[in-house]
Computed example of a mutant assay.
Amino acid sequence: MTEDKYAASHPSVPDQALLTRCEEAETCSDPSSVMTLLGESDSHNGGFTSYRSTFAKGAVGAPAHFHTKATELFIVISGSLRVLVGEEVTVLNAGDFLAVPPHTPHAFAAAPGSEADVVFVFTPGMGRFDYLRLLSRVMRGEADPKEIAESSERFDNHYVDSPVWRAALADTA
């Protein structure tokens, strides 16, 4: 499905139900993951952004970062996801749920030797699908990584250095 067709069929209209059929959902992919864009709304009631990511074995999902406005929710459908929350690294398994509040550094990757299938929800929403599309283009070498840094305020995605996360990733390299 094209971006224009998706935008036309999934308006960000306040207080309106949103249904996304799996077979109609837009996907973004790179060599290590596939993101299925489920839905987003910038409604006056706070809105949300939701997508599903399937990660290849041991694939890195996101470096350490935080959000100033959004709470990020993780729901692991299958496999195992290694996550950093603050200064602690833990593994989430199928059925586990995690809520990361604003201003909390976090990162995630498929656990070593494991794939991961995860639903992510951001609330309040703020039109993050464009960020996911950009990220996918950067990972495929079709866009400059500087574009991600330049979009940090727009998408409320602020990268930070985490020695704890770097060490955790190095342990499996």
Score class of each variant (00 low, 15 high):
residue 139 M to N: 15
residue 151 S to Q: 08
residue 129 F to V: 02
residue 126 M to R: 15
residue 82 R to A: 08
residue 16 Q to R: 13
residue 108 F to Y: 12
residue 45 N to T: 13
residue 129 F to N: 04
residue 11 P to C: 01
residue 150 E to A: 15
residue 171 D to Y: 11
residue 101 P to D: 07
residue 131 Y to L: 15
residue 148 I to W: 10
residue 83 V to E: 12
residue 24 E to C: 00
residue 53 S to T: 15
residue 145 P to R: 00
residue 10 H to G: 03
residue 68 T to V: 07
residue 119 V to H: 00
residue 40 E to K: 04
residue 119 V to M: 03
residue 92 L to D: 12
residue 97 F to S: 09
residue 140 R to P: 10
residue 114 S to C: 13
residue 87 E to D: 13
residue 152 S to K: 06
residue 146 K to S: 14
residue 95 G to N: 01
residue 27 T to P: 05
residue 13 V to M: 00
residue 156 D to F: 14
residue 116 A to H: 03
residue 91 V to M: 02
residue 96 D to Q: 00
residue 27 T to L: 05
residue 8 A to N: 08
residue 133 R to I: 14
residue 159 Y to I: 01
residue 28 C to Q: 07
residue 136 S to E: 07
residue 28 C to S: 09
residue 115 E to K: 10
residue 130 D to H: 08
residue 150 E to H: 15
residue 101 P to G: 05
residue 2 T to G: 13
residue 68 T to A: 10
residue 9 S to R: 10
residue 21 R to S: 05
residue 138 V to N: 01
residue 133 R to V: 11
residue 38 L to H: 09
residue 114 S to F: 14
residue 124 P to G: 01
residue 158 H to E: 09
residue 85 V to L: 06
residue 60 V to F: 11
residue 15 D to K: 00
residue 144 D to K: 02
residue 45 N to E: 15
residue 94 A to P: 02
residue 9 S to C: 11
residue 115 E to S: 13
residue 134 L to G: 02
residue 9 S to W: 08
residue 23 E to H: 06
residue 78 S to I: 10
residue 91 V to P: 07
residue 73 L to Y: 13
residue 50 S to D: 09
residue 68 T to D: 12
residue 165 W to N: 01
residue 102 P to L: 00
residue 50 S to A: 15
residue 52 R to S: 04
residue 6 Y to W: 15
residue 29 S to M: 10
residue 59 A to H: 09
residue 57 K to V: 12
residue 78 S to L: 07
residue 93 N to W: 03
residue 152 S to W: 11
residue 106 H to W: 06
residue 37 L to N: 02
residue 147 E to R: 09
residue 125 G to L: 04
residue 123 T to D: 09
residue 163 P to G: 12
residue 75 I to T: 08
residue 98 L to I: 11
residue 48 F to S: 10
residue 149 A to M: 05
residue 33 S to C: 12
residue 101 P to V: 02
residue 135 L to E: 12
residue 92 L to G: 09
residue 37 L to I: 09
residue 45 N to F: 10
residue 97 F to N: 03
residue 85 V to Q: 15
residue 44 H to R: 08
residue 66 F to N: 02
residue 42 D to F: 12
residue 126 M to F: 14
residue 156 D to G: 14
residue 152 S to P: 09
residue 62 A to N: 00
residue 31 P to S: 06
residue 27 T to S: 08
residue 144 D to H: 00
residue 103 H to E: 13
residue 167 A to M: 03
residue 92 L to S: 03
residue 132 L to F: 15
residue 16 Q to Y: 08
residue 59 A to S: 11
residue 130 D to K: 06
residue 167 A to C: 10
residue 42 D to A: 12
residue 140 R to Q: 12
residue 31 P to T: 06
residue 24 E to L: 03
residue 49 T to F: 09
residue 20 T to E: 10
residue 61 G to K: 02
residue 131 Y to Q: 11
residue 114 S to M: 12
residue 120 F to M: 03
residue 28 C to V: 10
residue 152 S to H: 04
residue 164 V to L: 07
residue 130 D to R: 03
residue 105 P to T: 05
residue 167 A to K: 06
residue 117 D to C: 06
residue 92 L to A: 00
residue 10 H to P: 07
residue 71 T to H: 10
residue 132 L to S: 08
residue 172 T to W: 06
